[in-house]
Write a protein that binds this DNA or RNA. Structure first.
Lengths: 196, 196
DNA sequence: CATTATTATGAATAATGATTCATTTTTTGT
DNA sequence: ACAAAAAATGAATCATTATTCATAATAATG
């Protein structure tokens, strides 16, 4: 077995266990069992328990960034780009529900407890949104007075809260894609009735 | 000292300690020290460590709900109501930064680790938004096709993510009130340029 | 003031689980 | 096939801490 395979096996096991029990309640031995390796083996690939979470976060967000950038590559309409981002974000839940749960909780923990950790991968991910907004302003599609830095946070926050709900509740009313489109619609056009 | 005073002293100490170290890294003895009581005393008022977090959450969200409902009492314009909600939500950060940090993390943890806990107080808090949206639709201010249940999550998520950023970063560019207004503006009118 | 009830204390308990490392197994190179 | 290197094992260690409870302090009662 190649080294990277075992690394990945442990990562995937950790995702499962963290999603099931949360980071603090997860035991190293749980992860080891899930990955079918010995407890000690984990320390050949990671420095400590926290390191598993951090590198998992960086690796997986890295993949998500690559994927969504690829999806956006051939689209120039900023309205459509925002929708693509939203649909992709929500669709993660379908394919990798456990991962989404772990990323959500990691996001709220690593920043708080490891001061020196800056979470640059996450920033890279949400900066995709501000780039779209900025481009949309230059092309005249979006209003000049909205601030890309605010929109990126608000948009991400809206999507993330929706997926938090989804991850918890068993029987959702609408498809993930519909939900993503609705949220995009709100951000693009607002909820107020137009008079024109 | 009245019983309720000690209860509250412990709660307030817990807010401080949880905000500083996070729930799992906080020791009971930390809270006891901060509250200036003995470790054992805490168990006269709470069943266990987790119970401190839960009841803290319920009590404090309860107060927030009362306050915002009071602020909304004399307003009938749904656009303004949404803004009042947003401004109040963001302003919590100014007055009770530690509490906001704790509520944010609690929200991501209690649902996950205590299956039977339903978090009804939180639902009551965000239902204020869906009520506003619903009224706005009845009065013809808001578009019929937006779904109050989606708006409430998206709006809360947007506000919450902004306050997460604020809680982390030391030097914000804008005031909390400006930020709240901007987010409300986006939800009301969207970011797309109007042709009319 | 004496007695009982309430409230508070903090040292002791007892379980837990991250990490280490001496030993074993597997792989590599010749 | 053999020796050396690399990878893996898992039992033992050791620190950590939530919770308990025998004892003490304080308050209420009559």
């Amino acid at each position: 077995m190649r080294v990277s395979d075992k690394h990945q096996k442990i990562t995937q096991a950790a995702v499962k266990v963290f999603a099931r029990k949360g980071f603090f309640n997860a035991r190293i031995s749980d992860i080891a069992k899930e990955a079918k390796v010995a407890d000690g083996t984990i320390y050949l690939y990671f420095n400590n328990k926290y390191d598993i979470l951090i590198s998992l976060f960086e690796d997986e967000i890295g993949k998500i960034i690559l994927k969504v950038k690829l999806l956006l590559e051939n689209e120039t309409d900023p309205l459509k780009m925002l929708e693509i981002y939203a649909v992709h974000h929500m669709s993660l839940l379908q394919d990798q529900k456990e991962l989404v749960e772990v990323l959500q909780m990691e996001l709220r923990q690593s920043n708080k407890f490891i001061k020196e950790y800056r979470n640059t991968k996450f920033i890279e991910y949400i900066d995709i949104v501000s780039d779209i907004v900025h481009k949309g302003q230059q092309s005249g599609h979006f209003r000049q007075e909205v601030m890309p830095g605010v929109v990126k946070r608000a948009f991400f926050g809206a999507l993330d809260e929706m997926s938090r709900l989804w991850a918890l509740s068993a029987k959702p009313k609408y498809t993930l894609e519909e939900t993503a489109r609705q949220i995009t619609g709100i951000f693009l056009h607002g909820i107020v009735v137009r008079n024109s």
